[in-house]
């Protein structure tokens, strides 16, 4: 993150809330981060952490009638949140593209896949000839590894398997060579062998196209496979932002410790209790005061009342660029983070 170039994406003090019958859901609460060209950044968190809502805001996809969005999201110097509809449409699909979780429902069932890829190209290349569009679509289908593309270009989504559909969604996303690709749980709905294929494909296409990937996932295995930088989200906040090696080897937030502990021991072929985080994530309508994680945190008693009253700010911890939002002192965070038994 010691990049001197301007970020391709800058999220500044983003807050997103939804009005519901039960009250105001604060899905994203004051988060800021920068993303630089060509990097792969993973945003990891459990359900309700706000990661998908945050991703939706980058392209202004959230329902504007119920969602209230504050802050700034700068793409190419344009603030997506205040830009005109025309400007945002110019960014969507061209500067920033998106892959969704469920390939079974992400494609329009009423049109051939050729038409759907072409549509994404034509909207940003209005002058393109039919011939050119056809060639672009075929080339894209080949790039994402769809066998016999000449035949399959005229088929409908339901004639494809889940993995193949996700490849088509990727083809749609990359057809305009975007600078940023947002992938929202792109492999969660897929089987492991297909997940491996899709992750490989995304990584090799990143090499070819050079785009930045923002990958949203709940799966730390996927993070370990592809990420350079990782943002850990909990209850609408960023609790840790670290380089991937730092996160896995010396995480600096109690929530990260718990998350890693919950899965890390799967890898070992031993039975025995998994480390668990007690309780469950809080309601976003009535978040706990202070640090949102404190009711589930085994360390919160050790540092007085600050955890219950003051919301911790994201700050640099240690020397490897990690940032953490925790009231524990740097020394404590580093020494527990490096230790094998973080509980």
């Amino acid at each position: 993150m010691s990049n001197t170039a301007a970020p391709v994406l800058s999220v500044q003090n983003l807050r997103v809330s939804f009005d519901t019958q039960d009250g105001t859901v604060r899905a994203v609460d004051d988060i800021s981060f920068d993303v630089y060209a060509g990097e792969t950044i993973c945003i990891v968190g459990e359900s309700g952490s706000g990661k998908s809502v945050m991703a939706g805001s980058i392209m202004r996809l959230n329902n504007s009638s119920t969602a209230t969005t504050e802050g700034k999201i700068l793409v190419n110097g344009i603030d997506v949140l205040t830009a005109s509809e025309e400007e945002v449409r110019g960014i969507r699909g061209s500067e920033v593209a998106m892959i969704f979780q469920d390939p079974m429902s992400a494609l329009n069932p009423y049109f051939t896949i050729g038409k759907q890829i072409a549509e994404a190209y034509v909207v940003h290349h209005p002058g393109a000839s039919k011939r050119e569009v056809h060639d672009v679509v075929l080339a894209m289908m080949i790039k994402v590894g769809i066998p016999s593309p000449e035949k399959r270009i005229d088929e409908y989504p339901h004639q494809f398997s889940g993995g193949m559909r996700q490849r088509i969604v990727i083809a749609i996303a990359l057809v305009n060579n975007p600078k940023i690709l947002i992938a929202d749980e792109p492999t969660t709905a897929l089987d492991v062998t297909v997940q491996a294929q899709i992750l490989d494909l995304m990584m090799s296409l990143q090499k070819e196209f050079g785009m930045t990937i923002i990958l949203i996932t709940h799966d730390l295995g996927v993070v370990a496979e592809v990420a350079q930088d990782v943002i850990v989200m909990y209850a609408g906040h960023i609790v840790e932002q670290s380089h991937v090696d730092a996160l896995f080897h010396s995480p600096t937030h109690p929530y990260s410790w718990g998350l890693l502990g919950s899965v890390a021991s799967y890898g070992a072929n031993k039975r025995g209790d998994l480390y668990t985080i007690s309780g469950s994530p809080p309601s976003l309508i009535s978040l706990p005061a202070g640090c949102a994680f404190h009711p589930r945190c085994v360390h919160s008693k050790g540092s007085g009342n600050a955890c219950m009253t003051v919301q911790p700010k994201l700050r640099d911890v240690g020397t490897d660029g990690s940032r953490s939002a925790c009231h524990l002192t740097d020394d404590v965070l580093i020494s527990i983070g490096r230790g094998s038994d973080r509980s």
Binding site: V192, A224, V244
Partner: peptide, 27 residues
């Protein structure tokens, strides 16, 4: 073997480890 090799790694330092099998196609 292929199924196990498709399971994501548990530590980024294992990235690019040898002998990972990638199955082609679908079931």
């Amino acid at each position: 073997k292929a199924l196990l090799s498709a399971v994501p790694i548990h530590d980024p330092s294992e990235r690019g480890g040898p002998g990972r099998i990638r199955l082609q196609g679908d079931v």
